[in-house]
Amino acid sequence: MRAITYSRGCDSTRLARCEKKGIVEVVAVPLRSPLANRPAMRFRATIENVDTFAKIVQSVEKLQKRCIIRFGEHEMRIICTGDVNEGGIQVWSLAKKGEKSVLSFEITGLTATGRNISVVQHILIDVLRHSEVERLKEPMCPEPDVHILLPPLGKLRTVVERLRPLAGEGVIFRANLSGELQLAVNTDNARVEVGWSGLANPAMSCGDKAKVASQGEDDSDAKDPTQMHGVLVSHKCLLKFLNSHVISSTTIACNVADAGGVLTYYIPAKFDDGM
């Protein structure tokens, strides 16, 4: 089967409001088609774990009011250009191609009295052209120097918030392979460094493992566990990310010191319940 990708701009605020206990059915249908007739749909998916979906959408909403949803054969990606936020949710099925463009949510839930209730929401969307979709590229993520598990995001956010008046050009985000993380800011008035220790450095991808394995032989490439790798990040961006932490309390950040300096976050969501 052809893996067709449709992308559309969609109001994430409205998406976020669709959090209900129950099952959500997401369909893309032509506008003004009676939904009962089940018109030609480009795709249809049933979300079993509505909580997680709502949390993901809420997280995305914190970052950007409009987002691009890219439907693939087996996944749906929510994309905020600039930042990429991926939510590989579950297997999605594709429906037939339609003319026009709403994303409709059929939400079934229980009322306070215990009766079944069904809510249908149509969200107007803009369908992106294929050429535009082609231009959506995942950002380049160089092989990170350090993977580190961040401290509880709520606490980290408090500190980052408090650093705002002290952060001149940005926040220097440093970590090493000994579980140490430092945030440093500089202004004329003060130099402040906040340090955490005893954090975990998780082993990440297979490629990383291979690299670690090969390190034993290649001493020149061996990483000094106490060497700090740091990047300078914008305070605003860092805080924006930390504000979107509803989905999970722990996050892995990986730090790249050399190749341009990119700070990447992996947000481990809990998809373990039968998905």
Binding site: K155, N189, A190, R191, V192, E193, G195, W196
Partner: peptide
């Protein structure tokens, strides 16, 4: 827990 080192001008 975390520690903060501040040098204030």
């Amino acid at each position: 827990g975390p520690t903060a080192t501040c040098e204030i001008t």
